[in-house]
Simulated scan of single mutants.
Amino acid sequence: MTLELTLVRHGATDWNGAGRWQGWTDTPLGVLGEEQAHRLAARLAGHSYDAACSSDLSRAVRTAELVRPGAPLILDVRLRELNFGQFEGVTTEDVLHDPTYHDWQRDPWNLPAPGGGESLRGVGERLHDWAQELPDGQVLAVSHGAAIRALLCVLFGWPSRPVPGYVLPFAYQLAHTSVTRLSRKDGRWTLHTYNDHAHLE
């Protein structure tokens, strides 16, 4: 038997548009995010899933509800975004002037964000624990940008290193409501599609 896992990043929020870091802050979808989710729903309308899961943060929950209207939804805190600690609600422009940010950026994969935040490794490992528990079948899950990429780093050994001009150590971007498809067979994971956002083009 095989698990077919479809990972979706939530739709955009007003904080995304303002360059403000959300993390565990519970921000709602913006108008653009609602439109993105409707477009994804139309794209996935002919596909059936055995289960639908979501982070418990409202921007993810709302995305899942729009993509799979009326379907039962399993909420799991392990699908949450990276906890940015003291940087929650701060803009990228402002955080660049904070010396504690630059200290964290030396190794954000292993160092927790200051002020009670998480490391990216910790995020990847909690999502990995969640994914390993999934039963075989077709599963749709809505999560967050850093969280999905951290999971892929854990599953496939992708590198995590500083990228000039970007606040997270990922050289690969992930669009809002993009689709990333994986499968697990006999304990082995395979990546089939990454950052597919054709419905937005």
Rank of each mutant, 00 (worst) to 15 (best):
T2D: 11
E4I: 13
L7E: 07
V8T: 15
G11K: 04
A12K: 10
T13M: 06
W15K: 07
A18P: 05
A18D: 13
W21Y: 15
W21L: 15
Q22V: 10
T27E: 12
V31S: 08
V31Y: 03
E34S: 06
E34K: 03
E35H: 05
Q36A: 02
A37K: 00
R39G: 00
R39E: 00
L40P: 05
A41K: 01
A42G: 03
L44A: 01
A51K: 08
A51P: 06
C53V: 13
S54E: 04
S55F: 06
D56Q: 08
L57T: 02
R59L: 01
R62A: 11
V67N: 00
P69T: 04
A71R: 07
A71W: 09
P72G: 01
L73I: 02
L73M: 02
I74L: 10
D76Q: 06
L82Q: 11
E88P: 08
D94K: 05
V95F: 10
D98S: 09
W104N: 03
D107W: 04
P108T: 15
L111R: 13
P112W: 05
P112N: 07
A113S: 13
G116P: 13
G116S: 11
G117V: 10
E118K: 06
L120Q: 10
R121Q: 14
R121T: 09
A131Q: 03
E133V: 01
D136I: 04
G137R: 08
Q138V: 11
V142E: 02
S143R: 03
G145M: 12
A147V: 15
A147R: 09
R149W: 11
L151T: 09
V154P: 00
P159I: 04
S160R: 08
V163A: 09
P164K: 05
L168M: 15
P169I: 15
P169L: 15
F170K: 07
F170W: 15
L174D: 12
T177K: 00
T177H: 03
V179H: 03
L182H: 12
L182R: 13
S183Q: 14
R184W: 09
W189L: 07
L191R: 08
L191N: 06
H192V: 08
T193R: 03
Y194Q: 02
D196A: 05
A198R: 08
A198P: 03
A198I: 09
A198H: 06
H199V: 04
L200G: 01
